[in-house]
């Protein structure tokens, strides 16, 4: 029980992503998630990794893939989300595409809600997603990992975007 409260395991997240049917991961490195998620995903033959130069590219690529039924996960830092807001607005929100974003909240204090972070950049993420009408889930501990697979499956079944906010650095497998 203790582990569920204060730990976030990278391998559990990766397993949940696999269960959702995602086989393509579009990435820009994020210091918070690189060891626990990006590095093992990069080495995992079950995934096709596509390195993008800038985060908004990932929205276009994922949208294109979605027409074939191929599920993709976008993995980047909240700064990339902020930089991509026009693509999020158009492709994810207005076009209602199944864009699944896993967003590292680098700098968020573990155990502190994003809204209560001392960092302005962290505090504004959830309100921005809310005003854009984008479903969000905070993934802070192993107990939250169970949200991931249903969130991605639902995104594709309903053709709607979703953001999974990684609230602490996942432990490397």
């Amino acid at each position: 029980m203790e582990a569920l409260l204060d730990q976030l395991s990278g391998d559990r997240i990766i397993e949940a992503v696999k269960q959702s049917g995602v086989r393509t991961v579009l990435t820009v490195p994020d210091r918070m998630t690189e060891a626990g998620l990006l590095k093992p995903i990069s080495a995992d033959p079950d995934f096709r990794q596509i390195r993008v130069c800038k985060e908004d590219e990932a929205l276009g690529i994922s949208a294109g893939l979605s027409y074939s039924g191929q599920r993709a996960l976008l993995l980047f830092q909240y700064t990339g989300l902020l930089d991509s807001l026009n693509a999020v607005r158009a492709i994810a929100a207005e076009y209602s595409m199944p864009i699944c974003m896993m967003v590292g909240l680098h700098g968020k204090e573990p155990g502190v809600l994003p809204a209560e972070s001392k960092h302005y950049a962290i505090r504004i993420i959830e309100p921005i997603l809310d005003v854009m009408g984008i479903s969000r889930h905070l993934i802070e501990t192993d107990g939250d990992v169970a949200k991931i697979c249903p969130a991605i499956v639902s995104a594709y079944e309903t053709s709607t975007p979703v953001a999974m906010l990684i609230g602490r650095s996942p432990v490397a497998p």
């Binding site: 596509i50 908004d56 276009g60 690529i61 994922s62 294109g64 027409y67 074939s68």
Partner: peptide
């Protein structure tokens, strides 16, 4: 261009 890459990979 990003959409096109998605289609090409799909």
């Amino acid at each position: 261009s990003s959409h096109a890459l998605g289609f090409a990979l799909a």
